[in-house]
Design a protein around this nucleic acid. Structure first.
Lengths: 344, 344
DNA sequence: GCTTGAAGCTGAATCGATTTAGCTAAAGTG
DNA sequence: CACTTTAGCTAAATCGATTCAGCTTCAAGC
């Protein structure tokens, strides 16, 4: 795909190269040359030039032209980092779509998409700052760098932040402190004394607070200090490796709190491989962010954000903001849900 | 949000209502009224009107204007139905992003998004037909209605169809026949004689063929007829219910082939609840479409599309088509991968 | 009274593609 | 030969928002 200097390749470029008008080029691009009676030789020359110059249509221009002025088109985005799992995100999308469908009419249309950003580099996402991409967004799975960016920016459209607390934005949050506390209580109530908090290296705001409050509660209620076991990442394999190393080192453990379900799944493997049983030898509490926690063996007891409520709230807030731009940034805290299953 | 008749609300509408120029309105919308010295009273009047009229900016126009002519902007979409799981889709996105990042430069930029359509209603997705939304798409998880739509349409941009065979499009497919056959061979080689094929009600093209070839192979090699157990949906709970009913009815079973891993996970529960052991009493083979099949207990033996290869191929084909629009629609068949783990 | 400066605003060009009405030249018709 | 028709093409308007240069008006300064 050759480039002619710095010049953009537009229909005009092609028209000039071939020696025809932009109308002719456009006709060929739309495959309407038959009905508009362009000479086959001309069509071929235009096609040739289109290929040779590496033409890429400007979609913004096309849409502007194609746009039916009777309908207002709303673009909603769900922005998440690449690294994060999509379970909650896909539920959010479905809920937003449901709300959008209910509002869609002859004069109003919505399109919703998931876009990913490189963790920590949200600010580089094109169209965010100049407001040329979305009428409203839900942002989630951000890293501290992204939070810093959001904290110093007021975007001129609806923004809902999921899972972070930012004073200048509308936020929907679980209550991570509460989550850690409840998890600790469940394990302590079973009589566990040697507790482990299994966390990934990269602590997000939520996983960080979940861990802190777990540790604080255990310390306060039992006087013991729980051990932090740090996994290399978010995957089960990371969790399994980390916990295996801990158990292998001969340090006692009768209860594990995993700050994500994927890590809990890894913990299961490490525990079983070590010949111990769940929950008899080691009890496990997860967070309820995995689609199939109920089908783990044994089913995983979860203390975590109540995803139904969160998904509902996020959608509601997004449409509230879009209806009223002045609306004060409010913070919605969703209390944790506790699902007792067999693992603790 | 009141609407004034059928008229669209644009900056011009607002300008007329307030009695100022569109330039003033635009200035306020961009929050540049300080530096451009608009009178506070005017700003307030404009803001008032913006709210009262329910103004929604036209993003296409904004982008067209904001667009830097030195860079070509490419929009890629991954289109999937709402109902489908996002595991493979998110892997495809990551791979496409990787390829896009490698091609991104001063004069070329990509944005990639996941968009969902209501199953069977792909044709209603706005911007697909008039080519105003994407420079290239990957379509997956389609229903027969969607396939029919695609079969009769040639879109004027790059299209890669994942998991379906359509003569007029570039397709990347697993070889479902092969998959069913290999699954059957594994179970038969273990000596299983009473086989079950666990499938959802709604058979897609792939799951349908996977089942057919499994049944045909078992019949041919052992003379026995495997039993089809039909689950109400794609979830583990559906699979568990269906298999539990089958086992409870006292019909023998020593091997299960589940056409999706979620169903296999349900099968695990039904089998264990019945007091049987995997694989000693009942062996299980899945398909490898679940992120954590390796962490099932026991780890699930999978015969299925090799997702690494598929994800690679899809990305490669998309960029090949974008580089050369004339390119013949080719069909890439990815042979199944077999991962022997403990379950069979 | 004349110049200067600032405040507050507007006109018009611009982004790139599409499309309609209409033009020209050549061919066909009676 | 005068006309209609057809093929093959183009000029210019249009979509909606943004922005820059520049125009008034009024107050202050000398």
């Amino acid at each position: 795909m050759p480039k002619r200097g710095k010049r953009p390749v537009t229909v005009r470029t092609i028209a000039e190269h071939v020696g025809v008008s932009t109308a002719a080029v456009s006709t060929v691009l739309a495959n309407r040359h038959e009905e508009r009676r362009l000479a086959p030789a001309t069509v071929e020359k235009i096609r040739e030039a289109v290929r040779r110059l590496g033409y890429v249509p400007n979609l913004a221009a096309r849409r502007l032209r194609a746009h039916n002025p009777e309908v207002h088109h709303h673009e909603l985005g769900i922005l998440t980092s690449f690294e994060a799992p999509l379970f909650l995100v896909s539920r959010v999308l479905r809920q937003v779509q449901r709300l959008a469908d209910a509002r869609t009419g002859a004069d109003r249309r919505y399109s919703i998409s998931i876009e990913m950003f490189h963790a920590g580099r949200l600010r580089e996402m094109p169209g965010l700052l100049n407001a040329s991409r979305f009428n409203g967004v839900i942002v989630t799975n951000t890293l501290p760098e992204d939070d810093a960016f959001l904290a110093e920016t007021t975007l001129p459209y609806a923004v809902v932040v999921l899972g972070r607390r930012l004073a200048n934005h509308c936020c929907v949050l679980d209550t991570p402190g509460e989550i850690g506390r409840r998890a600790a209580e469940i394990l302590l109530a079973r009589g566990c004394r040697m507790l482990v908090a299994l966390t990934p290296t990269l602590l997000t705001q939520s996983t960080g607070e979940r861990t802190e409050s777990f540790v604080a509660t255990v310390r306060a209620k039992s006087g013991n200090e729980p051990v932090r076991v740090v996994a290399g990442g978010f995957n089960p394999a990371n969790g399994a490796d980390a916990l295996r190393a801990h158990l292998g080192a001969g340090r006692g453990c009768d209860g594990v709190y995993a700050v994500t379900d994927s890590l809990a799944l890894g913990a299961y493997q490490a525990i079983k491989d070590g010949g111990r049983r769940i929950p008899r030898d080691i009890a496990v509490v997860g967070v309820g962010d995995h689609e199939h926690a109920d089908f783990f063996d044994p089913p995983l007891t979860c203390v975590g954000p109540s995803s139904d409520t969160i998904v509902d709230e996020v959608g509601t807030q997004l449409f509230r903001l879009m209806g009223d731009r002045r609306a004060e940034p409010i913070e919605v805290c969703v209390p944790p849900s506790v699902v007792r299953r067999a693992s603790a």
